[in-house]
Computed example of a mutant assay.
Amino acid sequence: MSADETPDQSVPDEVHEELMAATYRALCAHGYAELTMQRIADEAGKSKSLLHYHYGTKQELLVAFLDYLFDRFEARVAATEGDAPETRLRVLLDKMVPDGDYDGDYDRFGLALNELRTQAPYVETYRERVARNEAVIRCRLADIIREGVEKGDFREVDADRTASLLFAALDGARLQRVAVTDPSGTETASQSAFDAPTEVRAALDEFVVENLVREGGDE
């Protein structure tokens, strides 16, 4: 694509979904540093020219991918609307930890996403998306806590501060795990760091969520 051309952003929904799924698989398989448009195209079974036609550059495609992750997160949050605040809070926290004892995609994708985040200070579009996505997660957590307080399900707490604690604890635990785990997921330099997300998740239930919940609506 020449410098004076712009990508066609009107990507059909089905094609966009397919290419975003291929980007996810390519990131898991190769990591951010080794990710190329050709590898994404290979995962999708499409031509590299199609990716350039719709997204322009790898950077623009990854910005679209971060938007895709954001939209999926919002959809998961929306799916819990109408549930009790405690249920919604636990479901949202569960989405931030591995699914089962070993979740290879959690480790491989977590490492790739962390690599992408390290580029955010140098790439404005990455920085904007990362900041927005993380702010929205904290905001959604705070909204759920605030709703629980207003309904009398939760004790009176500072919702924003509590949400920041929950997010920082699980995000930090995820970083601990990806930092000590081989990308193949077969080796870890520290079992305690590898277990950090699930251990921190359990601790948050015990020391934060359980203390939020008001027994029988009474203090």
Rank of each mutant, 00 (worst) to 15 (best):
D67F: 06
A26C: 01
R88E: 04
R155Y: 04
V178Y: 01
E215W: 03
L69F: 01
Q176T: 02
V130S: 01
L166V: 08
E17P: 00
S190D: 15
D13M: 10
I145R: 11
M37K: 01
R155D: 12
A26R: 05
K58D: 03
F65C: 02
A120H: 10
Q38W: 05
E17Q: 13
V149P: 01
E128R: 14
F154N: 06
Y106Q: 09
A78E: 14
F207N: 08
E43Y: 01
L170E: 06
Y53G: 00
M96E: 11
L116H: 00
R39T: 07
T36I: 05
E199N: 02
E115S: 12
V77M: 11
G45M: 12
Y68W: 15
A21R: 15
Y24E: 15
G172D: 12
T162L: 08
G148C: 09
D101T: 13
T198R: 15
T6C: 01
F70A: 10
V130R: 05
E150V: 11
M96I: 05
R138A: 14
E60K: 12
T80R: 08
R129S: 14
E81H: 15
F207T: 09
D94M: 06
P98F: 09
D105T: 14
T125Y: 01
L93P: 02
V136S: 02
Y126F: 15
A159K: 04
R201T: 13
V213L: 12
D99Y: 06
Y122K: 12
C28I: 02
G148N: 08
R129C: 07
Y68L: 08
E128I: 12
R127H: 11
T36G: 03
D101Y: 09
L212C: 12
L61T: 06
D83R: 12
E210W: 00
G148Q: 09
A33F: 04
Y53N: 01
A173Q: 02
I40P: 01
A189R: 10
R138P: 04
N114G: 11
L113A: 14
